[in-house]
Design a protein around this nucleic acid. Sequence first.
DNA 1: AATGAATGAGGATTCATTCAT
DNA 2: CATGAATGAATCCTCATTCAT
Lengths: 194, 194, 194, 194
Amino acid sequence: MAALQKSIDKRNALIDATIELVNNDGFHATPMSKIAKMACVSPATIYLYFENKQDLVNKTYIEVKSSYTDYAFATYDENLPVEKGFEIIWKRIAQFKLKESTYATFLAQCDNTPMIDEASRQEGIKHLQPLLDLWARGKKEGLIKQLSDYMLYAYAINPLSFLMIAQNRGSIQLNDQELQQAYEAAWNSIKVCK
Amino acid sequence: MAALQKSIDKRNALIDATIELVNNDGFHATPMSKIAKMACVSPATIYLYFENKQDLVNKTYIEVKSSYTDYAFATYDENLPVEKGFEIIWKRIAQFKLKESTYATFLAQCDNTPMIDEASRQEGIKHLQPLLDLWARGKKEGLIKQLSDYMLYAYAINPLSFLMIAQNRGSIQLNDQELQQAYEAAWNSIKVCK
Amino acid sequence: MAALQKSIDKRNALIDATIELVNNDGFHATPMSKIAKMACVSPATIYLYFENKQDLVNKTYIEVKSSYTDYAFATYDENLPVEKGFEIIWKRIAQFKLKESTYATFLAQCDNTPMIDEASRQEGIKHLQPLLDLWARGKKEGLIKQLSDYMLYAYAINPLSFLMIAQNRGSIQLNDQELQQAYEAAWNSIKVCK
Amino acid sequence: MAALQKSIDKRNALIDATIELVNNDGFHATPMSKIAKMACVSPATIYLYFENKQDLVNKTYIEVKSSYTDYAFATYDENLPVEKGFEIIWKRIAQFKLKESTYATFLAQCDNTPMIDEASRQEGIKHLQPLLDLWARGKKEGLIKQLSDYMLYAYAINPLSFLMIAQNRGSIQLNDQELQQAYEAAWNSIKVCK
DNA sequence: AATGAATGAGGATTCATTCAT
DNA sequence: CATGAATGAATCCTCATTCAT
């Protein structure tokens, strides 16, 4: 349907503009009018798609978080052995964070800020389940340390956020070899040392 | 001098109010008038101590960052062996992040947001030098992996930020044993495996 | 014609919605979109029946005013003696104001507000002629005081508006006996005392 | 105090501007910016004196209502005989409504509109007590009909509102003789006919 | 040094109205 | 006829900042 498609396009344009502007200027310095202008719609049009500014940001967060996890697990298969499975997920996450850094930056800002509703935050966490399942399996098989999911995430995944931000700021530029090192550091920090 | 002390107190009250309010509401929802009220001064008084809102936040950031590094290195001695030195610094940082979580939360928000001047950000990084020196020594002695400082920080230190936020949100509560596990994970991820 | 009837129904629904909403929320808090919703049509449809918001309110006023006077004179016969004729009209007006208080409230709001065009106001007054004629006859016959029509209206009719509003607000509830007292007060205030 | 006086002046200017503009254009067509301009202050200044637009109108209503009753009872003495007392009050009210028609018009608009809080409305009614007391005395002494206060007000006082509006619209112009007639009509409608 | 009153610029949001379908 | 999506212009209100005292 042409009309429906146009609606979806507009909504997406708004979401994209929100990400772009919040990334560059921060939530506080991103007026609705600027979002509207970047999305090539009238300010009033935003309110056809979102209840208010908070809702726009919440929905944007959920959408981005969801595309993050979709990306992360796109090539993962539950039947893979633990280490291989982890490697695949980790590298997809790394790719997302370092290549789709616009999205990743936005998520980092949301996750470290009272910018987002608690409800939306909870909603966003849900989709990480396959990784938690993998870790559970790894622990049962004695391959992964008996640490809480938070601890595992902190050491295996979260460093990527830091590297992503450093790369965005131009402080570093990770090449394939360094990425491999990073992966190994991640795996080392959670695997059971034989 | 009583007058000077009163000035310092006022300045500190403003800094504290800024941290408190930005932590709870975010930069965008923290008006100067609210900061003034919490610090028990007139809005106009803020401008005797700081040029404008941006300056207030920048200065607050630098001050907090500096108290973070002061705390981190307070018990460190350059003559200690690398592993011991690292342990001491790491545990001080952990203590700071988990016990002084008000300050740590503020820093996390600044570090993931365009809230702060680039200049202030650079200023804040400076004070980390002793840790970088330690790592340089560790690499030379073959005890620490040949990774960039960013990579080392990402794996050895940054996970603590994630754990701090999770703990603030009430998702976890780290006890001494878990803290020790976290330390070991940190060291494992950067040490050269023999 | 079914099509014509549907049109009339829609127009009436819009008029009714306007009365209802203006009564409850006031003109200033009654958006066209709300009127449309209550009348179960699209906002755009309003503009097929009325030029704009002002026109909608003007037309509504004229319509209600006209149904008020129709009601007032429905049972009146010019050949009745003055006092009987007045009683009949007065009691019809009372019934309208107290029973059809939705309409009466709307009129009261229009009459005390710059909500309505001067032209529409003039248009609305026209229909009161039979009452003015009756008064003229009463004055000629020496039964009614030599007062201007405004004065007569002020004392004989307008008090009903006040009582209607008080009753709407729940402050009073007029029974038949009190209504009769009210009628007598009205007649007393304009009749020539012998 | 010069500063305090200036504050009071500003507040009064805002109240006056509100009355003037709401009278002419109605609540819905009176933007805060226009009120500010007429009172020669910045729009933001209004919010130093009033919480919001609703509060401004509520407070204006209470203030005007209060000056109405002050005026009404200024020359009244509780020890006067009932009829004389009523005449004095009635004529003061008439003078207020016809001479201070700006205030009276504003009150009429508030009283026939959902423009005002119920609470403010209640607050405004309070001050009418001396008149109600007089009526109670009149009823006890057998001089005034045994009617509810609402009914008495409807016939003795409210007609003045109608006459005031008619005079404002230029439809009539009451001279002293007509005013005396109006007074007599008022008294006739509530006095016990001997 | 300190203040509280004052403000202009700007931001979120609403709304009467239009237009493509 | 009828509509729902779209909008530009306004409106209420906030806030960083200033200034007279």
